Amino acid sequence: MGGAVPTNSAQGPYVSHHPAPVSAEMPAHPITLEGYSVLHQMFRFRWAAWNALGEGERLGVIKDAEQTLRPMEETGLTALFSMVGHKGDLMLIHFRNSFDELNEAELKLAGTRLYGYLEPVNSYLSVIELGLYDSTVKLYKQLMERGVVPHSEEWEKAIQETIERQKSAMSPRLCPKIPDHRYLCFYPMDRKRGEAINFYTVPIESRQKQMEAHGMVGRRYAGKVQQIISGSIGFDDWEWGVDLFGADPLQFKKLIYEMRFDEVSAVYASFGAFFIGLRVKIDGFSEWLGGKLPTL
């Protein structure tokens, strides 16, 4: 239907002088805490070109690589892994304070002579994340019972105070060193958001209960598997990245299999490719380049 747009001035469309109504519904999104920025780099190694080098040339490349990578490893925030299978040969993980520092780590590696023998095959960018479902639901209920309007100034102030308090308490989990275990399992994942099954339309209190049950399974593997979750919404192709570290790779299988039976995984989870690696310290990197897996 046609018709003129109502106006209240000569300059343009009608603009109401009454404030827009504010929803009194409980917000759908949980509070999250963010820590280190994370970059996974996966490479295929050009073995044929490497093996064609003379011994002196190889030693020069190794020395140059060690001078760059050793200081990075010594911080506990960069680690190398020998990859198992066809998806690549070498994986580097970097934890840093910002994307700027991650890019600096990339550029340092790219500036080595070793980089001429590395072919990038994959990468993943994310930020270590802790989702506070339980704390969020409790706080939202408390604020609404007091009559605080969601997203009001008072509401946002309470949220920020909670974030600051929790970040201080959770600092070791938000900004950890890379675990010094032999085996790594990394994979990206999503929560389904299709027409029939959509995790993001489930009420927050139901999601909180699902995530609580999911977390109980993970806690049973404490001491066997160390898990680091990183959020990647807006940063990469999936919503989260999951790093599992441990001394026995079979524990990865057992943990992930058991979690598949949780409602939040069985109904709402989608998984990307899985990458398995074995830790290679810089002290043993020359052995790896010689075709031998060094002991940890």
Rank of each mutant, 00 (worst) to 15 (best):
Met1Gly: 14
Val5Tyr: 05
Ser9Met: 03
Ala10Thr: 06
Gln11Leu: 14
Gly12Arg: 06
Gly12Ala: 04
Ser16Asn: 07
Ser16Gln: 06
His17Phe: 08
His18Ser: 14
Val22Gln: 15
Glu25Gly: 10
Pro30Ser: 13
Ile31Thr: 06
Glu34Ile: 01
Ser37Trp: 02
Arg46Phe: 09
Glu57Ser: 14
Glu57Ile: 02
Leu69Ala: 06
Met72Arg: 03
Glu73Trp: 01
Thr75Trp: 02
Met91Pro: 00
Leu92Asn: 00
Leu92Ala: 06
Phe95Thr: 02
Leu102Glu: 09
Leu102Phe: 09
Glu106Tyr: 01
Gly111Phe: 03
Thr112Val: 11
Leu114Pro: 05
Gly116Ala: 11
Pro120Tyr: 11
Leu125Gly: 00
Ile128Glu: 12
Asp134Cys: 05
Thr136Trp: 10
Thr136Ser: 13
Gln142Val: 04
Leu143Tyr: 09
Arg146Ile: 03
His151Pro: 03
Glu154Thr: 11
Thr162Lys: 15
Thr162Tyr: 11
Ile163Thr: 04
Ile163Cys: 11
Arg165Asn: 07
Gln166Glu: 15
Ser168Thr: 07
Ser168Tyr: 08
Ser168Lys: 12
Met170Lys: 08
Ile178Ala: 01
Tyr187Thr: 09
Arg191Gln: 13
Arg193Lys: 15
Glu195Phe: 10
Phe199Lys: 08
Tyr200His: 13
Thr201Asp: 06
Ile204Phe: 09
Gln208Ile: 04
Met216Gln: 15
Val217Gln: 10
Gly218Ser: 08
Gly218Thr: 02
Gly223Arg: 12
Phe235Met: 14
Trp240His: 04
Leu244Pro: 06
Lys253Ala: 15
Arg260Leu: 07
Asp262Ala: 12
Phe271Arg: 10
Val280Lys: 01
Ser286His: 08
Glu287Val: 01
Glu287Gly: 04
Trp288Pro: 00
Gly290Trp: 01
Lys292Ile: 01
Leu293Trp: 00
Leu296Pro: 05
